[in-house]
Amino acid sequence: MSSIAKVLNWGRHYSTWPFGSGLACCAMEMVATASSRFDITRFGMDVFRASPRQADLFIVSGTLTWKMAPAVKMLYDQMAEPKWVIAMGACAISGGTFAHSYSVVPGVNRIIPVDVYVPGCPPRPEALIYGVMMLHKKIDKRKFRQQD
């Protein structure tokens, strides 16, 4: 059983396709991560899927307002299992600068479950890559029982 889980985890580790969506300024850093200087392709993540059905990793990059929240929740629900979420930037983690605002969600974990938090305002691409590697570690630890 554990060897099956190992194979599955290996596949998911090296082929975590991100979902091409961005919310605010942090999205620009996510785009930079995908560009050739930082090259997220190395991890097999070059396939930025435009459709949530085919993506594995939702990088919530930026400020999430209450108005946008239903859309993000719906996008998350539309993704096929297994799926992961990275909260990128101070806004996505806790609301950041706008934490006390009437219109900003204080942390995306109020709406969708988050696997990895990448702090920064905005986080540098290196930080996002580090977060992705943390996520890879998490994927590697999945047991067979947890596999969907």
Binding site: G11, Y14, S36, D39, Q78
Partner: peptide, 30 residues
């Protein structure tokens, strides 16, 4: 594009399509 391309999955990323296949085939069907 002046980048490396997939190079983690095995030497030269040769097993990259295998990883993709494993992942895609076992994903939920909606």
């Amino acid at each position: 594009q002046m980048r490396w391309g997939p190079n983690r999955a095995s030497p030269w990323g040769a097993l990259q399509p295998v990883a993709d296949a494993i992942k895609v085939l076992l994903k939920e069907d909606i």
